[in-house]
Design a protein around this nucleic acid. Structure first.
Lengths: 180, 180
DNA sequence: CCCTGAGGCTAACGACGTTAGCCAAGGAGG
DNA sequence: CCTCCTTGGCTAACGTCGTTAGCCTCAGGG
C-alpha cells in the first residue's frame, strides 16, 4: 500500500475553523454552513474568517481533504486486512460505513462543487487506489467504484423505494464483482 | 411494460417558463438558473413568475418531472427492444446516453434537492421499473441501478482519472450484472 | 520608541429568493 | 352599459448570502 500524500499544514486557528465547519455541516446540513454561522461558533465575525481562508471554497476544500484522507485510510485498511469474505466485500463494507457515518461530508466530497484545484495533488488518486488493489484490473476497479458511490449516494439521499434490505443489494454487487 | 403515470397539465405560460428554465440550465449551469434570469428570458420581472409557480422549487420540480419522464421512456424502450447484447447492456446504453445528453438536468434530478413531494406519484418508480424488468430480481435491479447512476454521475463530474476508455468500464459492469 | 504586520472589527455591495402592495385589462352579472 | 372581480403584470423592499474596503488595536522586533 502506497503512503498517503503529505498534506499542507494548518495553523491552530485554521484547524479550529475547519473543525467548526465540519460540526455545523454534519449537525445541520449544507444550508447551515455559512460564513456567518462559522464565525459565530468560532467567536468572530464572518469577514474575519477571510484573514485565515481566502474564501468559503477553501474552507470546504479543507473538509473535502479530510474526507478523502479518512476514506482513503479506511479503504486501504480494508484491503490490507480483508476478512474471510474477500477484498471486494471488505472494501464495500468500509466504503458504506464511512459514507453513511458522515453523509453531509460525503455529499460535499462527491458533489458538483468539488474544488479539485485546491486539493492536495495525489490525494484523490490515493483514496481510490484500494479499488485497484482489490480487483487487479483497472476497468473492473472503476466499475466497482461506481457501484460503491452509486449505492452510497442513493442510500444517503433515500432514493431506494425499498430500502428494507439494502444489505442484500450491497451483497449482490459484491458477488457480481467478485466473480472471475 | 406499464404505462407512464398521467402528469399534471401545464398552461402555455407555465410551459414557456419551464422550457426557458431548461434552456438556461443546460446552457449555463445551475448557478445561472435564477428567478431573475428566467424572468428576463421569458420577458417578465422575477416576482411575476410567482403568479405561475409558487416558488423556484416548483419550477425545478417541473424540470425533474420531465427528466424522469424522458429517462423512463428511454429505459422502457431499451428493455422492450433489447439488442443482441441483452437487456442489461441495452438499459445501460440508454441510461448513459440520456444522462450525458442532459448533464445538468440529470444532476438536478439526482441531486440532494430532489423535490419528491412535488413529483407526480409513481413517476419515479415507473422510471426505475426497467431495471427490474431487465434483471428479474429486485436486489440485482437495485445494484444495477446504483452502478448506472454511479457511472453516469462520475462521468458527468469528470471524476474518473483515466477516462480514456469508459466504454470498457460500462461493459465490465454490464458483464458483471449479466451473469446468472 | 517607533513601526509593522497579524488579526480583529463595522459598513457596505451586489446577488439571491421571496413578499407586499399597486394597477391595468378583460370578462361576467345585473 | 356599468360595475365588479379575477388574472397577471409591475415596483419596492426585506432578509440572507459571499465578499470587499477600510479602520483599529496590539504584540514583537529594529
Amino acid at each position: 500500500m502506497s503512503a498517503a500524500p503529505a498534506r499542507a499544514h494548518r495553523s491552530e486557528r485554521e484547524a479550529e475553523i475547519v473543525a467548526t465547519a465540519r460540526r455545523i455541516l454534519e449537525a445541520q446540513g449544507p444550508d447551515a454552513l455559512t460564513m456567518r454561522r462559522i464565525g459565530d461558533e468560532v467567536g468572530m465575525r464572518a469577514p474575519s474568517l477571510y484573514k485565515h481562508f481566502p474564501g468559503k471554497r477553501h474552507v470546504e476544500a479543507a473538509l473535502v481533504e479530510d474526507a478523502f484522507a479518512e476514506m482513503g485510510a479506511a479503504l486501504h485498511r480494508a484491503v490490507a486486512r480483508p476478512g474471510r469474505r474477500g477484498p471486494v466485500a471488505a472494501i464495500l463494507a468500509a466504503y458504506r460505513e464511512m459514507a453513511l457515518a458522515n453523509p453531509h461530508i460525503y455529499r460535499l466530497a462527491t458533489g458538483p462543487d468539488l474544488p479539485r484545484d485546491l486539493l492536495t495533488p495525489g490525494l484523490e488518486a490515493w483514496s481510490g487506489e484500494p479499488f485497484f488493489l482489490a480487483t487487479g484490473e483497472p476497468h473492473v476497479a472503476q466499475a466497482l467504484w461506481a457501484f460503491s458511490h452509486g449505492m452510497a449516494i442513493l442510500e444517503i439521499e433515500g432514493r431506494f423505494m425499498d430500502a428494507s434490505n439494502l444489505d442484500r443489494t450491497w451483497r449482490s454487487g459484491a458477488q457480481a464483482f467478485s466473480l472471475p
